[in-house]
Amino acid sequence: MARVVVDVIPKPEILDPQGQAIVKALPRLGFTGVRDVRQGKHFELEVDDEVDDATLEKIAEGFLSNPVIEDYVVRRVES
């Protein structure tokens, strides 16, 4: 068994309304100095050992993210 983390985040050039809403709210709450926020998705997968990196890439690219608007990072955190 391995633990795999996939983080999906909107591509830099893509508008991120979620992040924008948070960054605009922060000064109202008294937190200054935060220049930008981007909101993404965090997935934690428990996978069998025989699942190889290529398969994980496919899962991340074709399913967990939409490569048209999102980037993703796959990390094995424990094995």
């Binding site: 309304p17 992040g19 709210a25």
Partner: peptide, 14 residues
Amino acid sequence: SYGDYLRAGAIARF
């Protein structure tokens, strides 16, 4: 409220 982008109601409460 505020698009509910963080969590529903999370920004409005402030």
